[in-house]
């Protein structure tokens, strides 16, 4: 019997100040952006994750609940947890162009103020974190 590989392999950074469950949530989000995960994909079962990496099953459970809460995944009774259609909406060329333009403007403005690339990236990270704080 050949075993199917999991749709995603998680990792945990113990030196991060981000709660472990949130690290998993972020990894699912990133995997969707990069195309590793798509609509309808089944997330590995709790036991599979626990077999794959050394992690508390409660953390995985918490992460999946959070993904459901965010509308990214849905639990189907007796089947498992699946990526929903809503979450994997492709982002089209116009949207991409508009976002890129705004980002370029921000960078130009920052350069004008004499702010370094590292500082800009730090600001963006901070903004994401605050956004995450608001949403969860």
């Amino acid at each position: 019997m050949t075993e199917k590989p999991p749709s995603i392999t998680f990792r945990l950074d113990p030196r991060s100040g981000v709660a472990p469950y949130r690290q998993l949530v972020d990894q699912v989000r990133n995997a969707m952006v990069s195309g590793l995960l798509r609509e309808g994909d089944q997330l590995p079962s709790l036991r599979d994750v626990v077999t794959q990496i050394t992690i508390n099953p409660n953390t995985v459970h918490r992460a999946y609940r959070e993904l459901e809460h965010l509308g990214i995944a849905e639990g189907r009774a007796g089947l498992g947890t699946f990526i929903t259609s809503y979450s994997s909406r492709p982002f089209d060329a116009t949207e991409r162009e508009s976002l890129e333009r705004k980002l370029r403007d921000t960078i130009t403005e920052a350069r004008h103020f004499g702010i370094s690339e590292e500082q800009i990236l730090e600001l963006i990270t901070l903004a994401f974190r605050q956004d995450g704080d608001v949403r969860t």
Partner: peptide
Amino acid sequence: RDELLRILMRQVAD
């Protein structure tokens, strides 16, 4: 160490 903790976590899950 990792194998030991993983077995422990599997028990918690099961």
